[in-house]
Design a binder for these strands. Structure first.
Lengths: 224, 224
DNA sequence: TCCATAAGAGTCATTTGTGTTTCTTACTAC
DNA sequence: GTAGTAAGAAACACAAATGACTCTTATGGA
């Protein structure tokens, strides 16, 4: 048994403590939440997944709701969305929306938790959910628009906030309605057929080049 | 005891049968679903609410998932959304969106059921949820657009389908993100600042009169 | 009126999950 | 090395829900 092998074997018998343990607990809780939803989340299952005992969980969180909420917060904190920088707004936005759809399980877990009663049980408010769901994303979306403004692509003073929010709102809607990845055709339709024409409408776009009026593509959404 | 009093008393002791019983069962299940969510839905509680015994439920539905799904279907069938006819598209649309937000509890109940595992447990597909959530509403939305076309307000051949869907998608999004009624300012912003400009962009509007570019209202959404 | 059916009530056995407690022992700091 | 703390394991008591079963009796149709 080499020194390395012994170190690995010793590691296997070691108890986790402090930060390392808490990270592992919260990660296990998050994974259970994403896989099974809030309703089916149990302390026992989280404990098993984290290779620990329930008493360890109860020493930190009074119950399932508090654990779930802490897991959500932890996940958001430790998994920031990378900010694209493609050099132009359209590509930044499409990249970001693609990243969003790859993480749709997070949205489902959080909204599902709320609808399952989490925020009532944890004695906090739906406003916190909004902060968690939207707050973690708005800075990113704001940043790509700020960058576009810096590049001279966009005049933010002319564009209502709800225009900037719209692509993300529609993505969230679709993710919750279909439980499938949002197809690329839909992402490009949101950007090219809805968002960019609105930017142009408000005179927010500084460089011509946006798609003009086009024949209606009459695209079929993934509804069946 | 008069004849009327005896009739009322007799009614109170009467058993329900057939359609009347089944309607009562499904209504009770729906009400429980809306109040407590899918996770906390129990056969016992539905039975109590319907003033019946669990055996009566089990005689019809093998379990909670089937009952919940049947309740959802029954509710949609028996509660169609009234179709506004104000004489112009904008007011029809705003009226319809207001009706939507008053019924946000339905959306929460259905999406919550899905996220709580209903459609897996009931061995049906998320596509059915989409049909239930969207199908019951798309005909209405389609109708107001058809009417506008008949009135000569709108040229449907020029407008992509996802433009027509957008107001409803955004409403659903907001209802799920805020768990509050969508404020009127937001509804009018969706219609006047997002939807109508897009109609104009595609040349779908036949009569001028839509709002032109306006200074960004920089409206605050209900986020805090 | 009689008969077949099912509504409604109550009971039972089983399972699952919660919350707690006790015990052993790993671990850190002194 | 010692002491204090908490991780991890196991067991316990209790509550809630499920699914099934038995019994009484209301109900509709013949």
């Amino acid at each position: 048994m080499t020194l390395m092998e012994r170190s690995v074997a010793e590691e296997a018998n070691r108890r986790r403590r402090g930060r390392a343990l808490e990270d592992a607990l919260l990660r296990a809780a998050w994974d259970e939440l994403v896989e099974s939803g809030y309703g089916a989340l149990t302390m026992e299952r989280v404990a098993v997944r984290a290779a620990t005992s329930r008493a360890v969980l109860y020493r930190r969180w009074p119950g399932k709701a508090d654990l779930a909420l802490a897991a959500i917060r932890h996940h958001i904190e430790t998994n920031p969305i990378p900010l694209p920088d493609t050099g132009n707004l359209r590509d930044d936005l499409i990249t970001l929306l693609r990243a969003m759809t790859r993480r749709r399980g997070e949205l489902a877990a959080m909204i599902g938790a709320q609808l399952g009663g989490l925020f009532t049980e944890a004695r906090t408010s739906p406003a916190e959910l909004r902060e968690l769901v939207l707050g973690g994303r708005r800075p990113s979306s704001r940043r790509i628009f700020d960058r576009a403004a810096e590049r001279g692509e966009l005049d933010l003073t002319r564009v209502p906030r709800h225009v900037l929010d719209m692509p993300f709102d529609l993505m969230r809607h679709d993710m919750l309605m279909t439980f499938e990845p949002v197809p690329d055709e839909r992402i490009t339709a949101i950007v090219d057929d809805l968002f960019l024409p609105l930017l142009a409408h408000y005179g927010g776009v500084r460089t011509a080049g946006g798609p003009g009026p086009r024949p209606p593509a009459e695209e079929e959404r993934p509804t069946s």
